Structure formats: C-alpha cells, structure tokens
Amino acid sequence: MLRLIPKNWKTDTYIIGLVWLSTLLLIVFSHEQPHLHVGEAVYMVFRGLLAVLLLYVLLPRFFYKGEYALFTLSAVLAFAVFGSFEEGVIEPFFFPYTRGADPWSVTGVIYMAIETMPMIAVMTFIKLAWDSKEAQENLVAAHSEKMESELKFLRSQINPHILFNALNNIYSHSLTDTGKAPDMLLKLSDLLRYTLYECSEDLVPLERELVSINNYIAIQEMGLEGRGFIDLHIEGDTQGKFILPFVLITLVENCFKHSFDTQDKGIEIRISIKAGADKLCLKTENSFDEDHRTENEGVKEKGVGIANVRRRLELLSGGEFSLTHGRNGDVYVLELEMPLKTKGAGRD
C-alpha cells in the first residue's frame, strides 16, 4: 500500500484532512448545543479510513490505470463492507437505543453511503485535481529533460565536426607553410574556447558568435590558397543582441564543406549577415561541382548540419524562424531568419 501513495501525499493529505475536520465541525455545530458525541467521532474516523482506502489505494490501483469497472466494483464493495461494519458493530455499540436498535439492513448501508458521499466527493475532487497538477508538472519536467538531452547530443555533434576540419587545415599548412600555423592555432584556440566554455547558455552574445565565425573563416581562407574567394558581409547593430549558439557557425561551416568537398578550384563563397532590431538574417551562397566524385558525400554532410540546426531552432526558438535552402544552378543558397534577443530579454 505504501508503494501506491504518491510523492505528494503529505500536501494533499493535509488538504483532505481539512475537509474531514470541516465535516466534523459541521456535525458539532449541527446540534442545538454544540457538542461532539464520542460515537460521532468514531463515525468520522471510520469514514475517514474509507476515504483513505478509496483515494490512496483504489484510485491509483484501478482508476488511474483505466480499469474503471474494477474501480467501481471495488468502491461499491468498500462502501458495503464499511457500511455493514458501521450498521452491525459501531451503531449497536455507541447508539444501542436509537440507530443501533434496528437490525442490519441494506437500507442502512445505503443511508451510510449517502451520508458519506458529500465528504468523499469533495476529497476525491481535491485528490484528482492535485494529482492532475503533479502529472502536468512531471510532463513538463520530462519534456524539459528530453530537450536538454537532445540539445547536448546535437552540440556534441557540432564541436568535433568543426574541430576536425580546422585541424585538417592546420596540419596541411604545418607541412607546407609553417609561418601560418601559429596564427591558425591561435584562432582555433579562441574558437574552441568559445564553443567549449562560452556556449553553455541558451543564448550567447551575437558579437561573440561573429568573432568565432571570423576566426573560422580566417582558418579556411588560409587553406584556400588561390583556389577561390570568400566574401563576408556583416551589417546592422550587433551590440547588446543575443542569439542561439552554434546556429550561424554550423551553417557557415557547412557552406565551406559543401564547396571544398566538391571543388578543387573555382570556389566561391558569399556570406551575408544582417542584424535588425529583433531579427537576424543569414544568407550563404557557395559554389559546388555536381560532377565531382565526392559530391554526394558533401551534400549528405550539409544535409546533416542543416537538420541539426533546424532541430535546435525548433527546440529553443519556439518555431519563430524560417530556414530555406536549395540549388540555384551551380550555387547552393541558404537563407535563415531567426529572432534576436536584446540584453534585457536575453535570459527569459
């Protein structure tokens, strides 16, 4: 029986106890001269035990599991047993010359049930309402925990991906141009510091996200070596604005990967970021060669990154975003609109 009692049993028991006490007080003051007969007190305690049986045993064991017929049958049986005990034992003992003088009868049991029903009904309403509130809170908590776990998984996919590509570029230059390697390592160090230590919050400063994008692009530019060009254009007021982390940099990283995986030369990448009062617009355009032997691999990776970003936006932005992408000839175009938060509203 103890295993069936919910974790909020103390609180709703206090509330139900107040209902029971109020009923007891009604009996006390129902007499011309307020008093409480010991037999009436025994009645109330006995009927309180019936309420405990109904609310803490039968309700969770049958009603909450959808076994309504069993619950109804058990409740009727409980009323019959308690009513019979009251008719056959309590009344003859405490009221031998009044109610106890009559023999046991079904009518007496029904009368006991009718008398008890108002109190049981109020207690049941309170119990159902309280349990419903707890179930809703548990559902919200479970959803929040699921979201947090999913976001951690999505983030774990992003960090190694960016790190792996950057290290590949640095390794290539360490073999051919050792003069560039130290600067690339510094930019990579700052990028990792940002992704590992500064992105634990749901929102990060837009300016810091843009610095990381600049560092990432600088690392990629060093590996471009005349095989194409990169154009980054940022406009708007970025101060005091907050944004979801890993969204922009993931899409920028995919933009590079899509081109690098499908082209050896003639790479063209254009990135435009516009910050408005409460909205940010990102547009990326990258060339690709659909006849390149690694094209399928590149498109597949790009699809994974976009799906990752879309899922994070769905979880954290409440659906307030627009993300479109597709081919326009030999150029892959992606456009994103997402909400920006000001410093005052950035932590809600």
Score class of each variant (00 low, 15 high):
Arg47Met: 09
Gly48Thr: 00
Gly48Lys: 06
Gly48Glu: 04
Leu49Ala: 05
Leu49Ile: 10
Leu49Trp: 12
Leu49Phe: 13
Leu50Val: 04
Ala51Arg: 14
Ala51Cys: 07
Ala51Val: 05
Val52Pro: 07
Val52Asn: 13
Leu53Tyr: 00
Leu54Gly: 09
Leu54Met: 07
Leu55Ala: 06
Leu55Val: 03
Leu55His: 02
Leu55Phe: 01
Tyr56Gly: 15
Val57Ser: 11
Val57Thr: 15
Val57Phe: 00
Leu58Glu: 02
Leu58Arg: 00
Leu58Lys: 00
Leu58Val: 05
Leu58Asp: 02
Leu59Phe: 01
Leu59Gln: 01
Leu59Gly: 04
Pro60Asn: 04
Pro60Asp: 07
Arg61His: 04
Arg61Lys: 10
Arg61Gly: 01
Arg61Met: 05
Phe62Asp: 08
Phe62Gly: 02
Phe63Thr: 02
Phe63Ile: 01
Phe63His: 01
Tyr64Pro: 12
Tyr64Asp: 12
Lys65Thr: 04
Lys65Arg: 05
Lys65Gln: 05
Gly66Trp: 00
Gly66Ala: 04
Glu67Leu: 05
Glu67Trp: 11
Tyr68Phe: 07
Tyr68Thr: 09
Leu70Thr: 11
Leu70Met: 09
Leu70Ser: 11
Phe71Arg: 00
Thr72Val: 13
Thr72Cys: 08
Thr72Phe: 03
Thr72Arg: 03
Leu73Trp: 04
Ser74Asn: 08
Ser74Ala: 06
Ser74Phe: 02
Ser74Pro: 09
Ala75Arg: 02
Val76Gly: 15
Leu77Glu: 11
Ala78Thr: 13
Ala78Arg: 02
Ala78His: 07
Phe79Trp: 10
Ala80Gln: 12
Ala80Pro: 13
Ala80Met: 13
Ala80Glu: 13
Ala80Cys: 05
Val81Thr: 14
Phe82Leu: 10
Phe82Ile: 08
Phe82Tyr: 06
Phe82Ser: 08
Gly83Pro: 06
Gly83Gln: 06
Ser84Pro: 11
Phe85Asp: 15
Phe85Gly: 12
Phe85Glu: 15
Glu86Leu: 10
Glu86Asp: 15
Glu86Val: 05
Glu87Cys: 01
Glu87Met: 01
Gly88Val: 15
Gly88Leu: 08
Gly88His: 14
Val89Leu: 06
Glu91Ser: 14
Glu91Ala: 09
Pro92Thr: 02
Phe94Ala: 07
Phe94Ser: 11
Phe94Asn: 15
Phe94Pro: 13
Phe95Glu: 15
Pro96Asp: 01
